[in-house]
Amino acid sequence: MIDFAKDVRLWFAPSRLKDEGDTPDYRFSLANERTFLAWIRTALALVGGGFAVDQFLPDLRWGVRVGMAFALLAVGAACALRAVNHWVRCERAMRRHEDLPLSRFPVVLSLGVGLVAVAMVVVVLLGWTSGR
């Protein structure tokens, strides 16, 4: 938790990031940047999915629809925050010549997305829609 607070401070203090170690090959930094952007796109897709569930599935019951939308939006926001945190940690690790940080997040995210997909199948199969 204290480590996390330190990471958050690094988000806002770019000069402190530059104080760490020495500048890595710029191509490594660019690769790190692209990974960050890929995670941002994942986050945007999840947020867009949240909007889509609310707008394009009006037949779902209110609770199911809002629950699904909120789950997707919350995961999207978490994904974006985690993206910047991971980017900062990778950048720092490269500067210090340490191993890149490992993360449980991809597994958690894939399990979450799989769960939402299965839930949608169940919802459709059981016909939990309000009906037209």
């Binding site: 690094l10 988000w11 806002f12 770019p14 940047e33 941002i40 925050l81 993206a83 980017w87 900062v88």
Partner: peptide, 18 residues
């Protein structure tokens, strides 16, 4: 390199939309 401020701005926009 990418400025942390730019990274934060992009993340901020995404979270704001959510």
């Amino acid at each position: 390199g990418l400025a942390p401020r730019s990274a934060l701005a992009v993340v901020g926009c995404t979270v704001a939309l959510a």
